[in-house]
Write a protein that binds this DNA or RNA. Structure first.
Lengths: 352, 352
DNA sequence: CTGTTAGCGCATTCAG
DNA sequence: CTGAATGCGCTAACAG
């Protein structure tokens, strides 16, 4: 079928081993033969057979990236940043990013991990929130341990560290966490400081760590300001516009006197804003609205959205370097990335 | 190192070939031995060695997706749709999507294609606009021909068909095109029909097919309405917010009496809107603004953006089925996907 | 239906 | 510095 190493070797009048050495570049070869080989490669348009070399070398140059939803900018930005770091990799040449959308399903997560294990991926990066189901957490940890044992680098990006061996031992997998809790706390504290008391909350999907963390931050701020945490002021949704819309409608139905709503993320906040507008409520005069993540569009809504910025790009880039071994894991294996409150025009003091 | 086929065979007291047959499922095997093998696989936690099987079978289950920018929702939506179709693939099991961001660079496009060729990818899907440079076009076509010759399916999604053999012969590669020209024409015709004459245009990046097509549609509509195509009313930019902002500023500097601006895409339109607002101009009372693509956020800007909807999701899904051979190529190899004008609130009759 | 026999194309030993 | 030999783990004929 295709041109093989042997063909190149024949044309360059050397052995296949020499061609292999020239191509991998990790072994001394005389300059004269080297250029001869390279010329033969050019002339024959030889392209290495990836599977064959992966088989012989027992390692591939594939890097798996697991995301919830590729079409969601949150993940697009992270995955894009990871991938950008793979290209310029120094030794070992170009890595290829295999992006897998799990749709938030723990089963699919495991399935993809197996697929990547099958490919002998050089590394896997798991992004975004994890399932809180402990059975799945255990299965996931076991799978990751197996991958890790087989030489695959494992990086968790934007999700909590997974089952450490003990309180002060290093985490088993390199982890980059977002300060979801702290960010949510800052945000709600800011609203409370403005004088808001009747604050509605559109929480993220149930059973996910990110949802739990953001909710915990929200509640902590409420408590710190002596505001009762009325469960009717919180409704669960997904990270999309429609969920935000529906949730806002429901929240308003339960308490028409709400003066602020914090959404699970910016996308959901868009839906909240739309619901408010449809009911003739002005933002922020009648109701303040805040998002989370600081996705690119959030500065362009009208009014511009108050939100919590997460360093998505930075996290992805760092995960990429970690995955290629170009950066040392942080001490303890876990690094926390800061969240920053961004006050814009969608929040204001409550009307009286 | 890892558990191999032979280990499973030994445990199940059958030959390696039988295990292989059970696992691929494309060959009759007695139910009793079959279950015995499956149990051994379970007990040993055996995972196929992808590279080895790809080498032996001379084909892999990797599918390459080339995009300009993974973080751009335009591509995220397409890539996500492609990938969704890969999961549920019937025969041949799960395919893995390898997503590659070219950043719009023709060189990187070629590089990634080589990387995918090296992996013996089952298919490659090239999305979005192509370079208009003829040298690159030739190089690309040659590369695609080589891939195709080696058994890799090639699908072009959202870009024009590449170098056909002749006027009425079938296109060499399956192609799904967007009607950029028709969409742009509808849009500008709509504005002209409203009475706009001084229409500014923020064009996309130079040297790309999509830019050329949309510009051609715009000009055709201008001509049809007897409006002079003043080159000073067009400025080139990129598909991002900052470009839209800068372009709008420049457009206004050249002609402060503009009554409408059509942007290269929705993201750029966001920037145009911001620039207008910063100068105290109201949308659409003072200046009408329109985007292109109908990205998810465009319904949530204020005012909601008039734009041209492209069937991104549908295109990606179809490309995915084409890539897995689950759908027959359209007659002639090329299918054109319709563009639909979406009139919302950001456009109105010009002020007098 | 199942076992046996050969490679797939390359990266490594190990000699020279 | 280079060549010859070996095997990575699996699939695909070919027999039985």
């Amino acid at each position: 079928m295709g041109v093989t190493l042997a063909d190149v070797a024949a044309r360059a009048r050397v052995s296949a081993a020499t061609v292999s050495r020239v191509l991998s570049g990790n072994y001394p070869v005389a300059e004269s033969t080297r250029s001869r080989v390279l010329r033969a490669v050019e002339e024959l348009e030889y392209v290495v057979n990836g599977p064959a070399s992966a088989l012989a070398a027992a390692s591939s140059d594939l890097i798996g990236i697991l995301v919830n939803d590729m079409a969601d900018p949150f993940f697009g930005i992270i995955a894009g940043a990871v991938q950008t770091e793979l290209g310029g990799a120094g030794p070992g040449g170009e890595k290829l990013a295999v992006v897998c959308s799990t749709g938030g399903s723990p089963e699919r997560e495991l399935t993809y991990l197996t697929l990547l294990q099958r490919q002998r991926a050089a590394a896997v990066v798991l992004t975004g929130s994890a399932s809180e189901d402990s059975a799945h957490a255990r299965a996931l940890e076991a799978k990751l341990a197996r991958l890790s044992g087989a030489g695959t680098r494992v990086v968790l990006c934007g999700r909590p560290a997974v089952g450490g061996p003990g309180p002060d031992a290093a985490a088993p997998f390199t982890t980059l966490t977002f300060d979801n809790r702290g960010g949510a706390e800052q945000l709600t504290a800011y609203l409370a400081g403005l004088g808001h008391v009747r604050i509605g909350c559109v929480a993220g999907p149930a059973g996910r760590t990110t949802t739990g963390e953001r909710l915990a931050g929200h509640r902590a701020a409420l408590a710190a300001h002596g505001i009762e945490d009325d469960p009717r002021r919180t409704v669960q949704g997904a990270y999309d516009r429609a969920s935000g819309y529906d949730a806002a409608v429901e929240l308003l139905r339960r308490d028409g006197a709400l003066t602020a709503i914090v959404a699970a993320n910016d996308t959901a906040a868009l839906g909240v804003c739309a619901a408010l507008r449809d009911r003739g409520l002005r933002i922020p005069q009648d109701v303040s609205v805040a998002g989370f993540d600081d996705l690119p569009f959030s500065v362009d809504t009208a009014p511009a959205l108050t939100t919590v910025r997460l360093p998505l790009q930075e996290a992805g880039a760092r995960a990429g370097r970690l995955a290629t071994g170009r950066e040392e894991p942080p001490p303890g294996g876990v690094a926390a990335l800061r969240a920053e409150l961004l006050v814009r025009r969608s929040t204001a003091v409550p009307h009286t």
